[in-house]
Amino acid sequence: MVFFLFLLVLTGLAWLVGRLGVSCLRGPQACMRLALAAALVFFGTDHLLTPERYVPMVEGWLPWAGQMVAITGICEIAGGLGLLVPRLRRSAGLLLAVYFVAVFPANVHNAIHGLTVDGLPANQWYYWVRLGFQPLAVWWALYSAGLLNWPFGGRIEASVRPS
């Protein structure tokens, strides 16, 4: 949920900057894309710098928990940067949606078994509530990449429309 709070704050800031006349930040997709990219790069970097915070989240049957954390961090950074490159945007959005689905079982495991992780609440409810936000992450990746235009309607951005 910290991730989503970060997304909302960054989206609001991007919207404000867009209102000040920065043309590349006009419209919800552009603001949400920039916010998602920044959040993914931030948290992906955190995966690499403080893996001990994330290792307890890896299910016990998976080998090499530290490497798994590093791989997820690299995926988040690559996906975030990919959203910023018009040529890669659609692919990055689709792969990020797949990534958010792929990490869902780890979030279920955390909710069932509970954790104590630095920087996150120790309360069990946190991990259960967090599960409800996973579909939002999938939608956010697809929408911000221009692969969906629901619920805002309108047309998909020309810079990412297939030719």
Rank of each mutant, 00 (worst) to 15 (best):
A102V: 04
L5H: 08
L94R: 11
H47C: 01
G21S: 03
A30G: 04
R161L: 10
A38L: 13
E157V: 11
L148E: 05
T11R: 08
H109Y: 13
R19L: 15
R90H: 11
Y143K: 07
W125P: 02
Q67H: 14
L16K: 12
L83R: 10
L115E: 10
L36M: 11
S91G: 13
V58K: 00
S23M: 12
A65V: 06
T116S: 14
G12N: 08
G73P: 03
W150E: 01
R33S: 02
W140C: 14
L81T: 01
D118T: 09
G18E: 10
W139S: 01
A70L: 03
I71L: 14
L20Y: 07
L34N: 02
G154L: 01
P63Q: 04
R33Q: 00
G114F: 00
L96T: 04
S159L: 13
L25M: 10
W140E: 12
N110A: 13
L20P: 03
A39H: 00
A92N: 04
T116I: 07
T45N: 01
G82P: 02
V98S: 02
L120G: 03
A35P: 00
Q67E: 14
I156K: 05
L136T: 07
A158E: 13
Q124K: 15
F100C: 11
P135E: 01
S159P: 10
V17M: 01
N110W: 02
V58S: 00
L96P: 04
H113S: 14
F42C: 11
T11G: 07
G153F: 01
L49C: 00
Y126M: 06
L115C: 00
W140D: 04
A106N: 08
V58M: 01
G21M: 05
S23W: 07
Y54N: 02
M32Q: 11
M57V: 07
A92I: 13
